[in-house]
């Protein structure tokens, strides 16, 4: 059921990494997963061209004109549909957000990422006003250092968000070579060579924890809707 998109108008905020990490963990757990790669750089399409054994289908033909039909088509076929959006403030982004069950707004712990993440939050709020119902979103940090090495600026951004009552995922995707290696080797975390790449088990644990938090959130949202 769930359609999940990753949006942040800033490029390099970690949209594709966050999204692919969660998508591969779900596929690894036996879920049917499809990804709409709406980023013109096509990072997920490139990843799919590798030799991963995961049965994840990737569609790369999204445009403003067909995004609605594409989402509706795939959502009726797969348990989970992910949309990787481009790093610009585009209309395609708004059309995807409004049709998603959850919008993830990834950001690394930098001021520039946070500023643009705030724009994505602004778009969600404007869209809510238009359609007259709540749109669910969550900010999610990536490329952060695990405690106790949390940087001051990360802590500050995080505190500001919580103070403003914004939903922030507790689990951060930490800065790990394995996440880079997914795109480099075009494999999932579980398929990476643990001898060639440092810290794969720790990355898998981190990724599964994040995915499990997202699943719990989706379950809560689905229960809220049913109630």
């Amino acid at each position: 059921m769930p359609v999940i998109c990753a949006a942040n108008p800033k490029g390099g905020a970690g949209k594709s990494t966050t999204l692919l990490t969660i998508a591969t963990c779900l596929a690894q757990s036996g879920a049917s997963v499809m990804i709409i790669d709406a980023d013109p750089n096509r990072p997920i399409t490139d990843w799919r061209s590798g030799s991963t054994a995961l049965p994840i289908k990737v569609r790369s033909d999204a445009t403003e004109a067909n995004i609605r039909d594409l989402i509706n088509e795939l959502a009726s076929q797969a348990q989970f549909v992910f949309i990787d959006l481009e790093g610009t403030a585009s209309r395609l982004t708004s059309r995807a957000i409004i049709r998603s069950d959850l919008t993830l707004i990834p950001l690394a712990g930098s001021a520039l990422d946070a500023q643009q993440a705030a724009r994505a939050v602004g778009l969600v709020r404007e869209s809510e006003a238009d359609i007259g119902r709540k749109l669910n979103f969550a900010l999610c940090f990536n490329r952060t250092s695990p405690p106790p090495f949390v940087r001051k600026i990360e802590r500050e951004i995080s505190q500001q968000m919580r103070k403003s009552g914004l939903p922030v995922l507790v689990t951060h995707l930490h800065r790990r070579e394995a996440y880079n290696a997914m795109f480099m080797e075009r494999l999932s975390l579980h398929e990476l060579s643990q001898t060639a790449i440092n810290g794969v088990p720790a990355a898998i644990e981190n990724a599964m924890q994040l995915t499990s938090e997202v699943l719990e959130l989706l379950q809560t949202l689905s229960d809220e809707r049913a109630a």
Binding site: M1, V3, L218
Partner: peptide, 10 residues
């Protein structure tokens, strides 16, 4: 493995 059984296509 994560429990994904509660989610089905729309």
């Amino acid at each position: 493995r994560l429990d994904v059984s509660k989610f089905s296509p729309r």
